[in-house]
Amino acid sequence: MINLDEFVSFIEDNFDLVSGVPCSYFKEFLSYIPSQEDKSPIKHLSATREDEAIAIAIGAALSKKRALVYMQNSGLGNIGDALTSLVQLYKLPILILVSYRGLKEDNDFPEHSIMGKINNSFLGSLNLLYWDLNEKDWEVSMQKAITVMDEQSSPVVLMVKKGVLSQ
């Protein structure tokens, strides 16, 4: 697992707002993200749906603030219109952390099996730039994501496998 003190402090240094829908793969990470009530340089808003989280992030992006969204890959199914008719149409930058469910660790969770298989082709069909967030070189991946989203004014997805942001 990534050192969460370092990871969250990186997020606080580089982002203004965080929003999303939880996944157990983010359990420890989310326990480190401050809630709205805490005195923190970032705002954290829990969303009812993944597309709502995207919308909240876009509200930040529209005022030159940097936003991070987190969701399970099941949520990719909920954000097609938010991506194509909002984020990509208006050409705005956001970073999306997506937990990679449906790999072999999830054999007992058939609800993730189909999205798990099509995960990459799904991201590809949405023309999304994506790569993995790994324990070892997480800072390089995050820094690259920030550079790409800022320079191209586009969304970037980082796939998060089991054990990277949770036990």
Partner: peptide
């Protein structure tokens, strides 16, 4: 963005 204006407004307002 059908269904999303309140979310966008919320992000703008908080920021």
């Amino acid at each position: 963005s059908m269904g999303l204006p309140i979310g966008v407004g919320l992000g703008l307002a908080v920021m």
